[in-house]
């Protein structure tokens, strides 16, 4: 028996919008720790890891570890039927091949339940080792989204370089080149407007902008994004989900032949 009640149901709606174009089908894993997901895109270039900790739910009952295979496009269709202020409850019985999403309006005058068929998904869980990163950049998520969108109108790939001067995003395409440099800036009104660069050593890596743009669909989940870079590792683009956990996107770099 599984019953997870999320007062801020809009979080789950935003999570689905953030990942449904990257991943088609995925197993949601439910344990005492929380509601989580790890999935790769179909070409095995990117990986998404989601954690919504059990403490973040108003009610969290998960009698035994459960893995529920869902088509994310279908799940998104169902969650779009929930109002932004609705409380969402996820329910499943042991051994059932369906999951129920219950939507309650804030004043309890409307209650809806949507039952979705589950699917068997053969997915391999990958071990993600703890790593020391050469550079970690925290910046406003809207700024990062803007840069990725702007650069993708010029080129297909972005070179992200971190030096003492700041973080530089560069691209080149048929019509020309573009460089955007963001310097560390902590003299801002609100902490989420800051750009903070922690650099152990300079690093420069190349990534496909198509994926970066897909990751920025998580922007509504968090005012800031944290980008971790190391020369022999996938980049990590992390959006913290307030009080609950995170959504992390890992993207393998492109390398020169």
């Amino acid at each position: 028996m599984l019953e997870l009640r999320l007062v801020q149901g809009s979080l789950l709606k935003k999570v689905l919008e953030a990942i449904k174009d990257l991943v088609n089908d995925a197993n949601f894993d439910c344990s005492a720790t929380g509601f989580s997901l790890q999935a790769m895109d179909s070409s095995h270039v990117a990986l998404v890891a989601l954690l919504l900790r059990s403490e973040g739910f108003e009610h969290y009952r998960c009698d035994r570890n459960l893995s529920m295979g869902m088509n994310l496009n279908n799940m998104s269709k169902m969650l779009k039927c929930a109002g932004n202020d609705d409380i969402i409850t996820i329910k499943a019985d042991d051994g059932s091949d369906t999951v129920t999403f219950m939507f309650e309006s804030p004043n309890q005058d409307k209650i809806a339940d949507f039952e979705m068929k589950l699917m068997d998904i053969d997915s391999e869980h990958l071990g993600i080792p703890e790593a020391e990163y050469q550079a970690i950049v925290r910046m406003p998520s809207s700024e990062f989204a803007r840069i990725c969108k702007d650069l993708s109108s010029i080129g297909d790939t972005v070179v992200i370089s971190v030096t003492k001067e700041g973080v530089k995003f560069s691209t080149r395409g048929d019509i020309g080149t573009a460089n955007v440099v963001c310097r560390q800036n902590t003299t801002v009104d609100k902490p989420e407007e800051a750009t903070v660069i922690e650099m152990q050593e300079p690093v420069s890596l190349t990534f496909a902008l198509r994926y970066m743009n897909s990751f920025t669909k998580a922007t509504p989940l968090s005012g800031t994004v944290t980008i971790s870079l190391s020369s022999d590792l996938p980049i990590v683009v992390e959006y913290k989900i307030a009080e609950m956990g995170y959504i992390r996107f890992y993207l393998a770099p492109k390398i020169e032949d």
Binding site: M40, H44, V45, A46, L47, E124, H125, L126, G127, I128, P129, T157, T206, A208, L233, P234, Y250, L251, A252, P253, K254, I255, E256, D257
Partner: peptide, 14 residues
Amino acid sequence: NSRQKSILSFFQKS
């Protein structure tokens, strides 16, 4: 020319 690496060349199946 650049080549796209796979995520599977960094993370192993657990």
